[in-house]
Write a protein that binds this DNA or RNA. Structure first.
Lengths: 335, 335
DNA sequence: ATTTAATGCTAAATTGTTTTAGATTTTAGC
DNA sequence: GCTAAAATCTAAAACAATTTAGCATTAAAT
């Protein structure tokens, strides 16, 4: 209820114009060489004192309306409950914070409609820039984002049909490392566990897998929401075939299949060697520990944020950002 | 650059007043019994057609400024990279979305200064309500939040000195369940692993632990950022003392200590029984699987969101929310 | 035929800030 | 003491919507 204190109240209380209050509050004094707006120390102090006393807080809606800036970013990802995205989200928020930005988050749960809704919603909220994880079928949403002219950076996946700014992991290289590792560990009948989703992170890893092991090497495809039955089916087939090496393409299916194998008494790392993709605590509890591909999450977030800030900066100073589409490719490491 | 389409552009194009456009866009036609604002079907269609054609999107800064509503919530938690908070964040976002809200997230990393900064920042962004996880020393931030009169709901922990709305787990009961379970599993020399942070979730669990096992039962206290050395030290002492049961008070320390024990070749669930707190995939890979206390995360998020919406609703209709301070206590279950 | 009521619409105020253009006051130079 | 220049400060116009109050026009009622 308590009516919020505005610049007007302060002006009245301090006996000055609202313009002056604004200048003082924004410390826009004696700036721009010609030092146009100058205020005497005395009035400045008086204004600041009143502001403090009345506990003034600027209304950001009004400021945004006038300036066209919100200092808000929009981050759209798959699922914050997944430690992979949760970690990225955390680092992104940290970067944003450091630069005076605040961030709106949204989860698509791999639903393209939801992706689209989030884009719309964030555009209307006037976010100054986006970091997005597209999903299968999110073309409409991506088109709208591109058409908006709002700065954005794609991470984790990308649609090769769209020439847009992104930060991406060298998944082909990562899979080569994984396969090299599992072969060194003695596996000869190697299969892969992947998601059914046709997104570049999966297909790039799969293509690389086939390049190394030939087109007949088998890949299991699991749905986005993996049931116990899904994982059990994979385990059964793996056992039946006598597969002795399994490379994973993501942490969730990785853990799901490990559970199913464990339930069946398969001696993991003896009967079958595993190489995971993305970190899970689970890997530590085998002998030897399960190797895994680690994507540089902090760096992904950092690079994406920096890239985005650069785009925002450019747009703010009137430059054309539609021509900048640099791709940043980061290497994953085997752990 | 592309100048945004405003209500004015539509008015001009459709040959009507901006007021009418606003009414049509908000579907405020023929409402409120007296059906004050009516538009003929024809003009309505014309306006909608123009809006569609020009791809009109309302400017939410202007709308917020005028209405004093932003349809944005602020969620402040400890660390989205932790699956516990990440999951809660996800459910909260989902609930918010369903009610037409968008959400700003912030991580404190258990730093009270950061908590304070986030409160300030979100207040200035005019969030309509907060869901917050306070941290040790966050009193200043909490006071400011309370003083703001903005609706908020506290989750996961609470300061018993503050009589505020919260959704909380019955931690005493949870710990009793955990202890009952570990005793049934045959453990007699039982210790506890907890955080050094003095927050209610930890202290309630610890108090309950002492109530059941007596004041001399030992509790290990780990810092918020646990190093391998920290966990190693606990493992060493546990081994030295011949502790045969360990109840955990949170997932992160739980996994850290499990790793340290595993590294030392301790036969988990044979030499020592473990009962975890909060879910981790790790628990499945022992024989028998490690029991754990599961907090109802979806329900926590749901109840908190509903509670918050109730408060917002009340405030919107001019009611005094400063008197409503209901506490919602949820039971955890042993899995 | 005149009042009354309903329908369809509009002008203008309002929200809290930033910012431009210019008005006042003070100081400095002579 | 006067003028020019410098130093302070202000009025008012944006920004893009919502919303109040009320104006025409047509239809219905007396």
């Amino acid at each position: 209820m308590a009516k919020n204190i505005t610049i007007k109240d302060i002006a009245k209380e301090a006996g000055v114009s609202i313009a002056l209050v604004s200048f003082v509050m924004n410390n826009r004094i004696g700036a721009d060489g010609k030092q146009k707006y100058r205020v005497s120390e005395a009035t400045k102090e008086r204004i600041l004192e009143v502001a403090r006393r009345l506990d003034y807080r600027p209304n950001s809606a009004a400021r945004s309306l006038r300036q066209g800036r919100t200092h808000v970013l929009g981050v759209i990802l798959s699922d914050m409950g997944n430690i992979f995205y949760g970690t990225i989200a955390h680092y992104l928020e940290k970067m944003a914070n450091k630069h005076g930005y605040t961030v709106l988050f949204g989860n698509t749960e791999e639903d393209p409609e939801q992706f689209n809704r989030l884009v719309q919603s964030f555009l209307e909220k006037d976010v100054e820039g986006f970091v997005v994880v597209p999903c299968q079928g999110s073309q409409a949403g991506m088109e709208r984002l591109m058409a908006s002219g709002r700065p954005f950076v794609v991470i984790d996946r990308h649609n090769p049909n769209y020439d847009v700014p992104y930060v991406y992991t060298d998944n082909a290289d990562a899979m080569r490392q994984a396969l090299h590792a599992i072969q060194e560990q003695g596996a000869t009948k190697i299969e892969m566990v992947s998601y059914a989703m046709r997104i570049s992170s999966m297909t790039d890893r799969e293509d690389s897998f086939h390049e190394v092991l030939g087109p007949d090497a088998h890949i299991y495809h699991l749905p986005f929401t993996i049931t116990e039955a899904d994982a059990d089916a994979v385990a059964e087939e793996v056992i039946r075939k006598g597969t002795d090496g399994l490379v994973m393409s993501s942490n969730v299916p990785s853990v799901a299949v490990l559970k199913a194998l464990f339930r069946r008494g398969v001696r993991i790392q003896e009967d079958i060697r595993i190489v995971g993709f993305d970190y899970s605590n689970v890997y530590n509890f085998f002998n030897p520990p399960i190797s895994y591909i680690l994507q540089p999450l902090p760096e992904i977030a950092e690079q994406a944020a920096k890239y985005l800030f650069r785009l925002i900066e450019m747009r703010e100073s009137g430059e054309d950002i539609s021509t900048v589409k640099d791709k940043i490719i980061l290497k994953a490491t085997l752990k």
